[in-house]
Design a protein around this nucleic acid. Structure first.
Length: 668
DNA sequence: CGTCTCCAGGTTTTT
DNA sequence: CCTGGAGACG
């Protein structure tokens, strides 16, 4: 038995010890939120609540993994029946069990952003609309908003209604689900089939939601459906750290929660255990400028600590050098490890320069975000092969690999094949199979032979994979068989390094699979679950935390993490707050401020802020203005290593010009 | 008919 | 600066 009162402060203790009923826990930054949840679950297990009755929903895979690890350590139990996962992974779990209720077949594919764009193109083409005239990236967002109920069709968007409908028809036809479907379809199952819902309600009688402030409306709907029966639900969040409203995360959820569970008990965790007094004061001062927030005040017993260092490097290269040099310097003192450092940036594009400097100084680092490993072209190619094997209806993946490596399948041949498929209402895979077997096929004989080989290859490897044994070796053989290396050499003739690098990525991918299938805790070893898994893993894969790497990531990705030393780079106006955020809605300034607040509160001991004087952007040297949030930090808390020089008349002029051009550039 | 090459455009944040 | 699409070539 764990003595909660001894390990936790009174508010934490209350949260952890009361397991029945509805709870709303407002947990400030660094207030020991994860610790509290961990103890709460451990306490449930102590009380004899079965693992299988507990569902904990987190925001990222990493958070889920960490929580599981901590509970394991705390209780010393095996946790095979406990469900700790992200909303999306939980959605996949439900769909794998019940998607046939909606008329889908079992091995559905999950489409990421890239697949989604391909599919929208496909939908447009089938409606005789030239995809070239569309802003596809933008459409992915519009469709997402519509599907999740965040927005309704507006005069500007309603012209895309037909494409949207076609897009959804195709998804179903291809037996595929996009990310939104992973939440929307389970809800549909629950609503259409009360018996299924009742089953899940009976199974998950104790539900916890972490980072509740970032739950979207539909995610909340899903949780509410599950929890309304038992009424045992505990949501934990911090409105000041709500940074995903653009994705449908909604403050209204807190209000809705209070309505849906009128007996809710509200607990506030306000003691901060993470940061020095200086850092906390700075954070508090900044966030106080926001008007829409629940009242709370973070306090701490720790001392004031060091002043916050604010620097104004000449340009982004100097900024990167400063960060790298400072890491070397602090590391040299011996009491810090590389993974005690976090470098936070507003946008992924800021990472490149910093990576350069870290590489040059031979500082080991890991970047999260940006083009995720699994969305790299070469990796997607390989994944698509495997997807076709698990789901032959997946036309998008099939079209991706049919001519990769090149098999002489060009535009004309593709037209014939897809045309045939449309006519016969069958998948492209089926069409290829039929067309190659046909007597007087419209395809030339040479191509028929090639395609026949392709079909056999798919069947052959599907068979090998289906044993569920040694899948990484099978994959290795597949990569050899299709001569992917030869393909890379061809494609990157002038750049052998690139080809080698891409091939190395594939080898890494195979190794990852090997590790995964040999993991003794893994109870579900088959190709399909692997594919599901990697589609949902994105930025936080780098679980190789051997303790030796500096962390470079976006502020969004840093949510829930803490570092002894934090660098906040690119603290310039138009970066944070981001120019695009402020364009239409001035209310967005509050979210940008929360983002800044999240960044500051990641720091435990030292905080370095850099704001470049100039920055190279789109082939132009732009003059930069320091972020307006810097002014919101009381000057007594900072130490400017390099005070800003007053502007010359000429500089003022350029600044106005650059502002103007930036503004112009951002209209539509 | 498939492939190669040049040119325009473009990502804020993520599951 | 890098990616993807359109047009010329083999």
């Amino acid at each position: 038995m764990i003595d909660l009162a001894k390990k936790l402060n009174p508010q934490q203790c209350e949260t952890a010890s009361e397991t029945e009923g509805a709870f709303l826990v407002i947990a400030g930054a660094g207030s020991g939120k994860t610790r509290t949840i961990t103890y709460r679950i451990a306490n449930m297990l102590d009380k004899g609540i079965p693992q299988s009755a507990i569902l904990a929903l987190t925001f990222t895979n990493k958070a889920a993994r960490e929580m599981e690890q901590r509970i394991k350590e705390l209780t010393g139990r095996k946790l095979t029946k406990l469900t700790i996962s992200t909303f999306h992974a939980f959605g996949v779990k439900i769909l794998r069990e019940s998607i046939t209720r909606l008329g889908y077949k079992e091995n559905f594919s999950i489409y990421d952003q890239t697949d989604k764009i391909s599919l929208i193109k496909e939908a447009a083409r089938s409606l005789k609309i030239d995809p070239g005239t569309l802003d596809l990236y933008n459409l992915t967002n519009v469709f997402s908003s519509i599907k999740t109920g965040r927005e309704v069709w507006s005069p500007e968007t309603s012209q895309y209604k037909d494409i949207y409908n076609e897009y959804n028809d195709l998804l179903k036809l291809y037996n595929a689900a996009d990310f939104d479907d992973l939440i929307v379809l389970p809800i549909k199952i629950f609503q259409d089939h009360p018996d299924v819902l009742a089953e899940y309600q009976a199974r998950y009688r104790y539900i916890m939601v972490d980072e509740f402030q970032d739950t979207s409306k539909i995610q909340y709907t899903m949780v509410h459906l599950l929890a309304q029966k038992s009424g045992n639900i505990c949501v934990v969040g911090d409105d000041d750290q709500s940074i995903y409203s653009w994705r449908g995360a909604n403050y209204d959820n807190i209000i809705q929660f209070e309505k849906d569970f009128p007996d809710v008990r509200e607990i506030k965790l306000e003691q901060n255990y993470r940061s020095t007094g200086t850092i906390l004061d700075a954070a508090n001062s900044v966030i106080a400028h926001n008007t829409k927030r629940k009242n709370k005040s973070l306090w701490s017993k720790s001392g004031e600590g060091l002043p916050i260092s604010v620097n104004y490097p000449e340009n982004e290269a100097k900024e990167a050098d400063f960060i790298a040099d400072t890491i070397i310097l602090l590391k040299g003192r011996g009491d810090l490890k590389f993974d005690d450092f976090g470098i936070l940036i507003r946008t992924n594009s800021l990472a490149a320069n910093i990576e350069d400097a870290l590489l040059r100084e031979a500082i080991p680092y890991s970047v999260s975000g940006g083009t995720s490993f699994f969305t790299r072209k070469e990796i997607k190619d390989i994944i698509s092969y495997m997807r076709v094997m698990t789901n032959p209806d997946d036309d998008i993946s099939l079209l991706r690999v049919i001519n990769t490596p090149r098999r002489g399948v060009g535009k004309k041949a593709l037209e014939t094949i897809t045309g045939f498929g449309k006519e016969k209402h069958c998948s492209v895979f089926r069409a290829i199979k039929d067309l190659t077997a046909m007597e007087n096929s419209p395809l030339p004989d040479k191509l028929k032979g090639q395609l026949d080989d392709f079909i056999h290859l798919i069947f052959n490897y599907k068979e090998k994979f289906s044993t569920g044994r040694n899948m990484s070796a099978t994959l290795n053989a597949l990569v050899d068989d299709i001569n992917y290396w030869g393909y890379l050499v061809m494609e990157y003739q002038k750049n052998e390094k690139e080809a080698k690098w891409k091939y190395k990525n594939i080898m890494t991918f195979i190794n990852l699979m090997d590790r995964w299938e040999k993991d003794p805790d893994n109870e579900d070893v088959n190709l399909y679950s692997y594919l599901n898994r990697i589609t949902l893993i994105t930025r936080d894969d780098a679980q190789g935390d051997e303790g030796g790497k500096v962390n470079l990531m976006t502020i969004h990705a840093a949510k829930g993490l803490e570092f002894k030393v934090v660098f906040l780079a690119g603290c310039e106006d138009a970066i944070i707050p981001h120019a695009r955020a402020l364009e239409d809605d001035p209310d967005n300034i509050e979210e940008e401020r929360r983002l800044f607040y999240v960044a500051v509160t990641r720091a435990m001991e030292r905080l370095y802020i850099t704001s470049c004087r100039t920055r190279h952007h789109q082939n132009e040297d732009m003059i930069c203005i320091p972020s307006r949030f810097l002014e919101e930090i009381p000057s007594g808390l900072t130490k400017a290593s390099e005070p800003e020089k007053p502007l010359t008349e000429e500089e003022k002029m350029t600044r106005i010009m650059s502002k103007f051009s930036r503004f112009k550039g951002n209209i539509k």
